Amino acid sequence: MARPTEKRTAENGVVLINVLVILALTASVVYAMISLSDLAILRSQRFSSAGQALALISGGEASAIVALRRDMTVAPTTDNMTEVWALVGQQQVQIAGGTFALQIEDAQSRFNLNNLPLSGALGAQILQRIVKRLDLPADVAPRIAARLVQPQPLVRMADLVAEAGLTPDEVARLSQLATVLPGRTDININTAPAALLAVITDNPVQAGRLQGIRKRQGFLTAADLTAAGVILAPGVGFVSRYFEVTTSVTIADTAQRMQTLLQRSTARGGPEVEAIFRQNPLGTVEPPKYAAAP
């Protein structure tokens, strides 16, 4: 028979183990609560940072929209790199808690691939020259042309990978001189790169002459073309309707990058500028409002 002292010792041991188990469980619960609280705080901070970043992106878009709307009133017959809209861009700068950068480009500074079904042999020739100029495989042009036989226009350059069998590298190189815009658009020779001037003139001497004039005075006019003895084919102009705005923002450890396609038009109330397509590196943010395109 166990002695009373031994019995009490055994009971005390069991009680101690139970107490330790309870303490361990309590510590685990407290630790889980603290961890969840920290996670909730971190998530809240990230949501706050994301909200601030999106607000800055909206502000960047708004500044571009204001400049482009004003430009339609001040200088409706030309769009060139000396104008205010082209100077709205902001190199990356430090802001409270992060960085901000804004870039605005004339989307019509490149050849619109969606022109192909509407421009016949001339459009096909320009695409072939672009492919040759960029030293791309010769079958790139017919593959793109085959895709554009379909009634649905291209929405993004990146879609050429899945829909025309191009490689990402080929698309990246093609994007130097080509783009995708809704409907038919002219190439703006005031903003087109020198390589594209050479393509559309198909004459290195004339292209160099135009580049020289544009470099000296910042833009080209119809009178400049006449004086230089240059006759350009249809599909080339001096003004643009579409502009691309790229805004990059970092707040704390949150990074946001948005590409927005802006469309200018004239309504009863005066000049209008609206965002018709937004996308970020993860894909489309908003479906394109291509129904609004003329």
Rank of each mutant, 00 (worst) to 15 (best):
R3T: 09
T5C: 05
E6K: 09
E6S: 08
K7N: 07
E11W: 13
I17N: 08
V19A: 11
L20Y: 10
L20A: 15
V21R: 06
V21N: 07
I22S: 14
A24I: 05
S28V: 10
S28P: 08
V29F: 14
V30Y: 14
Y31D: 05
A32W: 14
I34M: 14
S35T: 13
A40G: 10
A40V: 03
I41F: 10
S44H: 08
F47R: 14
S49A: 15
S49E: 06
A55H: 15
L56V: 03
I57H: 00
G60Y: 00
E61L: 14
V66A: 04
A67D: 05
R70C: 07
T73D: 12
T78A: 07
N80W: 13
M81T: 09
E83P: 15
E83V: 04
W85H: 10
A86R: 01
A86V: 03
V88M: 09
Q90R: 13
Q91L: 11
V93L: 10
I95K: 10
F100V: 05
Q103C: 06
Q103P: 01
E105F: 08
D106R: 14
A107F: 04
Q108T: 07
S109F: 04
R110M: 03
F111Q: 01
N112S: 05
N114W: 06
N114G: 03
N114V: 06
N115S: 02
L116I: 14
P117C: 08
G120K: 04
A121E: 11
G123W: 00
I126P: 00
L127W: 01
R129P: 02
I130W: 00
I130T: 02
I130C: 01
V131P: 00
D139M: 10
A141F: 01
A145I: 15
L148R: 10
V149E: 13
R156F: 14
A158V: 13
D159F: 03
D159S: 15
D159Y: 09
A162R: 12
E163H: 12
A164R: 03
A164F: 04
T167C: 11
P168I: 04
D169P: 01
R173F: 09
T179G: 13
V180H: 06
L181D: 04
P182D: 03
R184E: 14
T185A: 09
I187L: 08
N188M: 07
N190Y: 11
T191Y: 07
T191D: 04
A192S: 08
P193M: 09
A194P: 12
I200L: 15
P204N: 08
V205M: 11
Q206I: 02
A207C: 11
L210K: 09
K215D: 10
R216I: 08
Q217A: 07
G218L: 00
F219I: 06
A222P: 12
D224L: 06
L225T: 04
A228M: 11
A228C: 09
A233K: 13
P234T: 05
G235D: 05
V236M: 13
S240N: 03
Y242T: 00
F243L: 12
E244F: 10
T247M: 07
S248W: 02
T250I: 02
I251T: 05
I251W: 01
A252Y: 01
T254M: 13
Q259T: 12
T260S: 15
T260Q: 03
T260V: 08
Q263Y: 15
Q263W: 06
V273N: 00
V273K: 00
F277G: 00
R278H: 01
Q279M: 05
L282C: 02
G283L: 13
T284K: 07
V285M: 14
K289C: 02
K289H: 12
Y290W: 14
A292S: 08
